[in-house]
Simulated scan of single mutants.
Amino acid sequence: MITETLIKPPSPGMGFTAGSLMNDSLLQALGIRHVFASCGSEQDDHVNQVRTGGDWIMLATLGGGGTIAAGDGSFASLPTTLFLAPSGLCFEERAIRGAAWSWLCLRVGLAPGSPFLDLLPKQPWLGRPGLECFQCISDIVATLHGCPTGYRYVAVARLIVLLGILDRLIKRGKRPAISEAVDRACSLLCREPGRTWSVPELARRCGMSESSLAHRFHAETGDTPRRWLAAQRMREARRLLAGRISIKEVSERLGFSSRYHFTRVFTRLEGLPPGRFQRLATRR
């Protein structure tokens, strides 16, 4: 049996259920209990508490954006990003003030022993999976919302494709174990993120040649030391800003030439100015 709920399209500040699949023999054969699809738009600093229960949640941001607090992590959900929440998680969504957060959402329930359980992450994950992934989610939402009952299995097929894409994407992001030399390099960069590090100095401190360190560092972390340090600085910046440290002091601690330079880099990498991030982070 296929059940669905159809409600009029959303206006800003609300979401609606596009449709659902549940108690279906094909789903049961695949180890899928149900699929709920929804979409909506939130604005004006809207806050929403979400519990996944036994489901996996896939939240695709189309426009605007917000912050997601999940466990010990904080994620900036911006256009073209996808947030995956595993079962058993509670997280908080907060829309960026003055910008409508438009989204598509799938809530998938998997049965014990489902072959798809190994395809989804066990921890919160956020990334930019590409247009094919967004097309799958869009097709599922549209199919469950407006197509005749017989076409609902198109949504199941697109879900299988989507899970395969996510599996390849997440596995591709996994890196080999970190060697002692690269671990030391990362520790040095973390210990002094505001220092102007050069590859020759880092290689000397790690007892390696420049070329060996650069090659091994990229192979094991997926980044160059310079880009890895930039990401570490942003992580430290988010932590300091959430701790109510002034933007000027954060920029000085992290080795930026000026507050303006820090603001420009932070906005480019994080998608919102540090002042706005701090207001969102300290309002929780």
Results as ranks from 00 to 15, higher is better:
residue 151 Y to V: 13
residue 172 R to L: 05
residue 119 L to C: 09
residue 111 A to P: 00
residue 179 S to A: 08
residue 208 M to E: 08
residue 107 R to C: 10
residue 123 Q to C: 01
residue 202 L to Y: 08
residue 185 A to S: 11
residue 132 E to H: 10
residue 120 L to V: 08
residue 180 E to Q: 14
residue 124 P to N: 08
residue 205 R to P: 02
residue 134 F to T: 00
residue 220 E to N: 11
residue 156 V to I: 15
residue 168 R to D: 09
residue 176 P to Y: 06
residue 144 L to K: 07
residue 206 C to G: 00
residue 157 A to I: 02
residue 145 H to C: 12
residue 148 P to I: 03
residue 203 A to L: 13
residue 174 K to Y: 06
residue 188 L to K: 09
residue 179 S to T: 12
residue 197 W to N: 01
residue 132 E to I: 04
residue 171 K to N: 12
residue 102 S to K: 13
residue 201 E to Y: 07
residue 188 L to R: 09
residue 189 L to S: 04
residue 173 G to L: 04
residue 114 S to Y: 09
residue 132 E to D: 08
residue 176 P to W: 09
residue 153 Y to V: 11
residue 196 T to C: 06
residue 215 H to C: 06
residue 167 D to M: 02
residue 153 Y to N: 07
residue 165 I to V: 12
residue 102 S to M: 08
residue 134 F to R: 04
residue 148 P to A: 05
residue 155 A to C: 05
residue 183 D to M: 08
residue 190 C to Q: 10
residue 107 R to D: 12
residue 130 G to W: 09
residue 212 S to C: 05
residue 153 Y to L: 13
residue 198 S to F: 06
residue 208 M to C: 08
residue 194 G to C: 05
residue 190 C to N: 10
residue 104 L to M: 15
residue 108 V to Q: 00
residue 209 S to Y: 02
residue 102 S to E: 15
residue 112 P to V: 08
residue 133 C to V: 15
residue 164 G to V: 05
residue 140 I to R: 02
residue 187 S to G: 13
residue 202 L to C: 07
residue 121 P to L: 02
residue 106 L to I: 08
residue 146 G to L: 09
residue 181 A to C: 06
residue 176 P to F: 12
residue 131 L to A: 07
residue 121 P to K: 02
residue 105 C to V: 11
residue 183 D to E: 12
residue 160 I to Y: 06
residue 195 R to Y: 14
residue 177 A to C: 10
residue 173 G to D: 12
residue 192 E to G: 06
residue 218 H to C: 04
residue 139 D to K: 13
residue 221 T to A: 03
residue 221 T to F: 10
residue 220 E to Q: 15
residue 138 S to V: 01
residue 111 A to K: 05
residue 208 M to H: 03
residue 138 S to Q: 13
residue 219 A to L: 14
residue 159 L to F: 10
residue 109 G to P: 13
residue 178 I to L: 15
residue 155 A to G: 06
residue 156 V to T: 15
residue 108 V to D: 00
residue 133 C to L: 02
residue 175 R to L: 15
residue 166 L to A: 01
residue 183 D to K: 15
residue 125 W to N: 01
residue 198 S to Y: 07
residue 191 R to G: 06
residue 130 G to I: 07
residue 130 G to N: 12
residue 105 C to K: 11
residue 126 L to Y: 00
residue 116 F to C: 04
residue 129 P to F: 14
residue 107 R to V: 14
residue 188 L to W: 10
residue 137 I to A: 05
residue 180 E to Y: 04
residue 190 C to K: 14
residue 176 P to I: 10
residue 183 D to W: 07
residue 214 A to T: 12
residue 105 C to I: 05
residue 168 R to C: 04
residue 177 A to Q: 14
residue 171 K to W: 06
residue 105 C to D: 02
residue 148 P to G: 03
residue 192 E to T: 12
residue 203 A to N: 12
residue 204 R to F: 07
residue 140 I to T: 02
residue 141 V to G: 02
residue 161 V to W: 03
residue 129 P to C: 13
residue 174 K to W: 06
residue 158 R to A: 07
residue 189 L to K: 03
residue 143 T to A: 12
residue 129 P to E: 11
residue 213 L to T: 07
residue 140 I to C: 05
residue 221 T to V: 05
residue 163 L to H: 11
residue 216 R to L: 10
